[in-house]
């Protein structure tokens, strides 16, 4: 039975609240729902936590920042399935407690919970995929050949080195971009940065003159295709431009 004398002093109770709730302790707890100690603990399953920890670890290793939103990191994987396969291989290569290894759905949900900060590149439709990553993934999946745990680890590290290398190239690109935006005290710039890229040819509806009256294949049609080339130029903070040039080409 708790008597008035045996109760802890108010300051102690406040300190406890401070530790458990952090800044929220400053709020008047009578207004908000009180959080119990149990609710403050991480309620997630250990498998989800493990999957999340792995995703965060990979993001720290070689994630790119999203071109449009600096707060979002893009991981160089085409699909959740591919990322999950690598996760399973990683778990196999380093012997861990298999009770902690997340299943595909759990892994997907873990990735989804980090959507605000980490996303996948998912660009297979528009971009050529990396042969090195694809071949390494095939090897890790282990079709005809069965690799030992140590051998898997070597393949995984080989792939990681490759991904780290591409991250390094991107950092170099960012460095160049920032350097181009800098100005000397005299107000002059020393570098210009020109980023050129072409968009996948889009087929329009405009009929092509002399296009023939039959189609040989999917790529050959009687319409004009176009190639849109954008160029992003940086020449100091004052002058950042986008130039779009459209070339009408035979496809």
């Amino acid at each position: 039975m708790v008597t008035k004398e045996s109760r802890p002093p108010k300051k102690w109770a406040h300190c406890k609240k401070q530790i458990l709730l952090g800044d929220e302790a400053d709020f008047n707890l009578t207004d908000v729902k009180q959080k119990s100690l149990k609710r403050c603990l991480d309620q997630r399953h250990k498998k989800t936590a493990h999957a999340e920890a792995y995703i965060m670890y990979i993001a720290r290793l070689y994630a790119d920042t999203c071109p449009t939103d600096g707060a979002i990191m893009c991981l160089p994987y085409e699909s959740v399935g591919q990322f999950y396969n690598e996760y399973v291989m990683f778990c196999k290569s380093i012997v861990i407690n298999f009770d902690c290894v997340a299943k595909a759905e759990c892994f997907r949900l873990a990735l989804l919970s980090l959507k605000g900060s980490i996303r996948l590149m998912t660009c297979k439709g528009a971009f050529q995929t990396c042969d090195i990553c694809n071949n390494a993934n095939d090897m890790l999946r282990g079709g005809k050949c069965r690799y030992s745990r140590q051998q898997r680890e070597i393949i995984l590290k080989f792939k990681r080195l490759h991904l780290a290398q591409q991250a390094q190239e991107r950092r170099h690109q960012e460095k160049n971009r920032l350097e181009a935006a800098e100005m000397t005290p005299e107000g002059k710039t020393v570098k210009a940065y020109l980023l050129s890229d072409g968009m996948t040819a889009m087929r329009g509806d405009t009929p092509k003159v002399g296009g023939g009256d039959f189609r040989r294949g999917k790529q050959d049609s009687n319409c004009i295709g176009n190639r849109i080339i954008g160029n992003y130029s940086i020449y100091s903070y004052l002058f950042v431009s986008l130039i779009i040039i459209v070339a009408y080409v035979h496809i």
Binding site: D64, P67, T68, C74, P76, M121, C123, A126, F127, Q128, T129, C130, D131, I132, C133, H162, L163, Q165, Q166, E169, R170, Q173, L195, D197, M199, T200, I228, G230, N231, Y232, L242
Partner: peptide
């Protein structure tokens, strides 16, 4: 030049 298969750049967003 960026490494093949990892060439996503900022201009692709505009595309």
């Amino acid at each position: 030049f960026l490494i093949v298969g990892h060439t996503h750049t900022s201009i692709d967003q505009y595309f």
